[in-house]
Design a protein around this nucleic acid. Sequence first.
DNA 1: TTAAGGTCTGACAGCGCTGTCAGAGTCAAG
DNA 2: CTTGACTCTGACAGCGCTGTCAGACCTTAA
Lengths: 117, 117
Amino acid sequence: MKIGELSKRTGVSIRMLRYYEAEGLLKPERTESGYRDYDTTELRTVERIKLLGAGGMTLSTILQFLACVRGEGPIFEPCDELRVTLRQQIRLVEERTEKLAQNRQVLTSFLAEIGEA
Amino acid sequence: MKIGELSKRTGVSIRMLRYYEAEGLLKPERTESGYRDYDTTELRTVERIKLLGAGGMTLSTILQFLACVRGEGPIFEPCDELRVTLRQQIRLVEERTEKLAQNRQVLTSFLAEIGEA
DNA sequence: TTAAGGTCTGACAGCGCTGTCAGAGTCAAG
DNA sequence: CTTGACTCTGACAGCGCTGTCAGACCTTAA
């Protein structure tokens, strides 16, 4: 399928689909005239990228275990690399959460200090 | 005092002090030769900016109620604007926290799915 | 054949800082 | 006076996307 269709089917903008490619996450075939021609399996790859992205992962992070993401199986192949990355990512998210908690603390202190009014 | 001293005293890099000025947060005097000359009260202003920044606020957000921040009093003058902004900022932080919680959820689900191993 | 709509590449912009580098003037101590 | 430390301005870079625009080609249906 062409990029427009993939975009509509996945909800990912054409711009981003091309960006995924630039980042090495997708490698669609090309028609004689140069149009990107996506295999239907890429549909799932894109969905997975979306999901991982929803987990706050960077495309370059996702790229690290792309092999797992591109797996043909119904679910990712067992992939230690993926497990490691997932745990790191969870740590990262937890750190950010902690920082936000601190931010909140600072802000509420301020608010209390000047009088809730 | 000159910028180097203010930087050492506050721990804010020279680069950032100049940036604060560019953003309208500081307006130091200038010596004849063009050197920035900070009043000692700016010391406190910078500290407050640091603190608000630690709350996750953007400099442009801080700028909105700069008058309160620059106040001479031992603590901010009563300032409705500030209260409003603080509440908005707290909301923003909470939203980000929620999003991170979702991120974490997505990631842990993935991890469980491929087997904790 | 023509026109509309899809696609291509490449590049600029913006978010909010933050470091760094260049080229030049200034200041203070020896 | 010389030298080293400090300051000045302006600009480029990077993070990680994401939109948009330009100029040009392709495709498809009327």
